[in-house]
Write a protein that binds this DNA or RNA. Structure first.
Lengths: 164, 164
DNA sequence: GTCAGTGCAAACTTTTTGCAACTAC
DNA sequence: GTAGTTGCAAAAAGTTTGCACTGAC
């Protein structure tokens, strides 16, 4: 299974990272890494916590999740996003580069790919800045909310009334 | 004064927005708008709070700041960023489009402009998504941190030791 | 055996909310 | 006059921290 292969690879990378930095190889850390690499798309700490409590039969405390996520970010296995109220994370090994389209009304986040855009960002001259990763968030109205608004505006015609 | 002219214009835009949406035109709201448009670069609620308490002789509560900032965002006069722990805001009327370079080590945020990049983002096909604004965050090591790391690594040679 | 790592609860920080007082309209 | 706003304080939400216990090395 391809997915299993990725999991093994990241486990190896993590092990190397832990060794190189003198950290211990605890079962919690590997369980967390494994769970994260089972998740498609974004997640926050709370989701991860429930997931590990429910599906996996390996309970870890929130504190450990926070600690471990920092290690995973440093090991370049996870990246952190900050839309919405809580921090969002996602696995990043072997993932296609993608951008984020966020609806400012319903908050829905959609990932999309665009090679030209990706190339433009990656070839940007940054002077003496050593790029590790980037996030592009495009905000606007998804077609659903956009249409809903148009309909609303049509109804109350003339002058618009109270948003929300 | 150019700056004064901008302040007047945004005050007008805000007034129109408040009218159109049936909100009241309170002195607090205009004082907040004015203060924000005196700030260069990013700020968070706490900074804004102190600024208004100290420099301006107009004290407003944090709750009002949060409330008003939402109105200003809807009026397209302020945009919200989320690097670091607290939300960051910045005025956005009459500002040049810019991107953000964030050092993952010292947390320093630098704005920069790049026309090619801007064009690439703005011409991206988004289907039936109605773009309002976007944020590009480029993460990496600023030259200062990068050099500091290199020096450190050279010293302890061979195998690297504990980050942080 | 030692000390990094863990779980737990308390502390802290940032943001939201409920409510009485105030004021723009 | 009356509803939208404000300030305050309490509550909520997310994250960090202190400490005793555990287990990786």
């Amino acid at each position: 299974m391809e997915d299993q292969h990725v999991k093994e690879t990241v486990r190896q990378i993590f092990t190397e990272y832990l060794n190189a930095n003198g950290h211990r190889k605890t079962p919690e850390r590997y369980a967390i890494l494994d769970t994260i690499y089972s998740i498609e798309g974004h997640f926050d700490i709370d989701t991860l916590y429930s997931l590990m409590a429910d599906q996996e039969n390996f309970r870890v405390s929130r504190a450990t999740l926070y600690n471990t996520i920092i290690l995973l970010i440093n090991a370049r296995l996870v990246i952190k996003h900050q839309f919405g109220n809580s921090s969002q994370y996602e696995k990043c090994y072997n993932r296609d580069t993608h951008h984020h389209r966020i609806c400012i009304q319903c908050g829905k986040v959609v990932e999309f790919q665009d090679e030209a855009l990706q190339r433009a960002i990656e070839t940007t001259k940054l002077g003496r800045f050593n790029l590790t990763h980037y996030s592009l968030y495009i905000y606007g109205l998804c077609s659903k909310c956009d249409n809903a608004n148009k309909r609303k505006r049509k109804k109350s015609n003339n002058h618009y009334k109270k948003e929300k």
